[in-house]
Design a binder for these strands. Structure first.
Lengths: 144, 144
DNA sequence: CCTTGACCTCAAGTTCACTTGAAGTGGCAC
DNA sequence: GTGCCACTTCAAGTGAACTTGAGGTCAAGG
């Protein structure tokens, strides 16, 4: 359509280098419909340079807490980005709740780390934190 | 040892009711050494009432981002809590980094939700967010 | 005494996001 | 031409934290 479509294609290896993702992840993303390879050279996938932006978008979505399936739903069939603004706002609210939770947690941990009570169970702040966690703990992972 | 040890034991069903956890989770926790059942009535597990505090502690650890294995390491063999204060501080720092990330993300999403640019890709703030996410996105889950 | 149903065990399944392994292919440098 | 090696496919494995299912047990109420 435009001049961009004539840009030099990227070998999957180059995409890996530029994105920091392993080839297996790229193949996985393609299988899931998150990215597309536009050609092959022999067996090797060739990607349009715009795939890098697409991958950045995916990384953004991931770190905002969207699942890959949700992210996939944010692209129109022709590959354009179209995020429901209400969805964004909802995710922002969700993040906000998570942030509040984590902040309370962080403060509690911080205190417990320096608290002079002989055992954590004897520290009133820790016990307050405990009661807070008992009701409605969120499910999250920060691992690796 | 003390009077507490003579308190009425709780049937697993009562523990479920009081903790909100399904019996399968309690059995799983016991298998992992996170809790102990002190007796059986027929086949049924009986728990000491203090298991409820223990479960609150586990919930706290979970929502602070510790894995079950890490939490298990916070109890001494005799069942007392002994958390390394340095570990707490480290986890607090980790939470702090996560909070910063999520805050940036939330603000970005919030803006994108009301931004008047025709497409998100044309919004400078969104693009800045995108660049931020491209480098070092954290791995997390908030789902259910 | 007999039924009921809440509990039991053990193995296998689930979800998410990938990774790993085995076996094969083919462009490119020599 | 021939060998290298980065790529390919497909199936299966990983890990975290549980859940589910099949088939069994047993204390208590009627």
């Amino acid at each position: 359509m435009n001049l961009r479509s004539r840009e030099k294609l990227l070998d999957i290896g180059e995409v890996c280098e530029n994105s920091g993702l392993p080839a297996s992840a790229l193949r996985f993303y393609e299988e899931k419909g998150l990215i597309v390879s536009v050609a092959r050279r022999g067996l090797r996938r060739q990607f349009h340079p715009s795939v890098l932006q697409r991958l950045a978008l995916i990384a953004l979505g991931r770190s905002a807490g969207f699942t890959l399936a949700e992210i996939a739903g944010m692209f129109t069939p022709d590959g354009r980005l179209s995020i429901d603004r209400a969805l964004l706002a909802a995710k922002a609210d969700e993040l906000d709740r998570t942030i509040r939770q984590l902040t309370a947690m962080r403060d509690g941990l911080r205190h417990a780390a320096v608290c002079k009570a002989p055992s954590h169970m004897e520290c009133p702040k820790f016990r307050r934190l405990l009661r807070a966690a008992a009701a409605g703990a969120p499910r999250r992972r920060t691992h690796e």
